[in-house]
Design a protein around this nucleic acid. Sequence first.
DNA 1: ATACATACCTTGAAGTATGAGGTATAGTGG
DNA 2: CCACTATACCTCATACTTCAAGGTATGTAT
Lengths: 112, 112
Amino acid sequence: MGKTNPPFMTGVPELLVLRLLSQREMYGYELVKSVRVVTSEAISLGEGVIYPVLHGLEKAGALTAKRKPVNGRTRVYYSVTPVGRDRLERLSGEWDRISAGVDSALGEAGLA
Amino acid sequence: MGKTNPPFMTGVPELLVLRLLSQREMYGYELVKSVRVVTSEAISLGEGVIYPVLHGLEKAGALTAKRKPVNGRTRVYYSVTPVGRDRLERLSGEWDRISAGVDSALGEAGLA
DNA sequence: ATACATACCTTGAAGTATGAGGTATAGTGG
DNA sequence: CCACTATACCTCATACTTCAAGGTATGTAT
């Protein structure tokens, strides 16, 4: 049934979604593909990850949704609110702190 | 009641414990303090985190435990087994992959 | 006596990434 | 005309794991 809490991924989807949407509005399906691109294929998030994150952030007031019909299909575009920008900054700082800590610990011996 | 799944921390305790023990054997209480030191105070893990990780890794065959009486108190020293070294390498590579991906995504716009 | 550091431990709570599965329309190749 | 793929939205159960708080006990300093 697949792994549920893979190492180092907690919080990453939310951070990436906020980061991407802070540059331009996008819809869910587009985000799925964009994450792969901006992480150089290092990280791949399924729709089952993206959509819940989107809904959660919208409920938290960090995103606003806008429905647009395109070619008969409906797309839901998301934009970042001021609340979302605060959240991005906070999360981003948290990431920097922790990744610096881990890298510091890992590099104790043979760093290039 | 305190946060349970803080962002970016999943897998980090295990990685740090394996990394520290790969350098020299240590006991739980010592690890708690060492983590703070090697991460430059960026990461602090309580005993409620360290001990379960230790027990889990021992059960998985990644660590071996050795009881030593010191000054009337008992210390349990842990060492990394070959299985643990494999696990450390795998986790370490995973960390590098994901942190590189995130950094790449975060740096898309205004990197210093 | 009081308090703090050492040193081990367990427990309940809660968040969350994942794969699989579900619906529906548009376009493409045979 | 039919099958298949891509687009585009969605939900759900599972299982993992960190965390704070609390518990036991000894040594040391005040």
